[in-house]
Design a protein around this nucleic acid. Sequence first.
DNA 1: ACCGTAACTTACGCAAGCGTAGGTTAGGCC
DNA 2: GGCCTAACCTACGCTTGCGTAAGTTACGGT
Lengths: 198, 198
Amino acid sequence: MTGKERREQLLDVARALFAEKGFEVTSIEEIAHRAGVSKPVVYEHFGGKEGIYAVVVDREMQRLMDHIVSALSGSHPRELLEQAACALLDYIEGSTDGFRILVRDSPVASSTGTFSSLLNDIASQVEHILSVHFARQGYDRKLAALYAQALVGMVALTGQWWLEVRKPKKDEVAAHLVNLAWKGLSAMDPKPRLRTRR
Amino acid sequence: MTGKERREQLLDVARALFAEKGFEVTSIEEIAHRAGVSKPVVYEHFGGKEGIYAVVVDREMQRLMDHIVSALSGSHPRELLEQAACALLDYIEGSTDGFRILVRDSPVASSTGTFSSLLNDIASQVEHILSVHFARQGYDRKLAALYAQALVGMVALTGQWWLEVRKPKKDEVAAHLVNLAWKGLSAMDPKPRLRTRR
DNA sequence: ACCGTAACTTACGCAAGCGTAGGTTAGGCC
DNA sequence: GGCCTAACCTACGCTTGCGTAAGTTACGGT
């Protein structure tokens, strides 16, 4: 097997293991073993555990960001919200393991002292979008950060839950999330539908 | 130092360490050392790492639940929401370390295979409350689970974020969360105020 | 046919950390 | 005063898992 191939295979195996057991508990030996290879091969390619983990996380972040950014085509915030929610659920469905990894906290991230979750990066993207909307509506821009966290938390935890139960269908989940975020509990649509989708 | 005292002290130390570094990374030796005592003392009291962790988590869950349950006095769902949000933020403020622990995933929890976070227990409480409201409004009760996850995720991630930035003030954060959940982005109050609080 | 390199191996050194065995202090109780 | 027990210690065995050193196969180019 060529170097490139092996490298990709190792990344696949590692992603699955990190998703299943977390960073600390996963051992390099296990990664190597499951790839049908011996330990030093992993060191050859990635230099160590942090190394391979970093690559896995980086790729997954990239993947997720691409997914979401390319989905945002609308101008109205409600459309954007809908598209973002759909994109995230698509990502969760398509890269379940990756999502599981992103949701756990990173190993060294706590060394920064600050709130670790990688969802923070996403939240700050959302914050920018919201900030524009807020300015237009006359709300305090400072509050965009708060609402961004709230929205991201809403979608992320629901996504994590949906990952297990897989019911109702994805589009329906997205429609309800948008429904809640946009209209609120007081004025919810009993049977919300997606508007921009497909 | 008497047995009871030592036990409590060890629990305090362990809570702080688990919050700071997570379960895997925290060692019994470190707990013992920081308590100014040697390893076997910890084993004497708790039998092992899982043992002391279990007690810490159990206490913290209890504490959180008590906090929230005792705060719920209203009848209108909006009041309940407001009270719950306030209670959670109070808890976060008062037991920062405990909240950090509850938010991380538990060590053996992934062995169950199912979605690990302890927030799930809270979500199912919320689900019951929502379910009543949904029935009254003619919504599909099956959807209460989804909306419960969404609401819990919203408050939890915002709480985690607020833990770091500590701004704006707690009551204000609660007011905005209720604002978003109740009225939605489309009809938000620019300067929401708490209604039931104090 | 020969050499070099790329892919991979076995085998080891080493540190961290769990859990335990056995011994030591000290204070209450008869 | 002698004894028992509760609280604690030092010291050890053992496993796991990281990272590395040195050797082996196989294939392509000259």
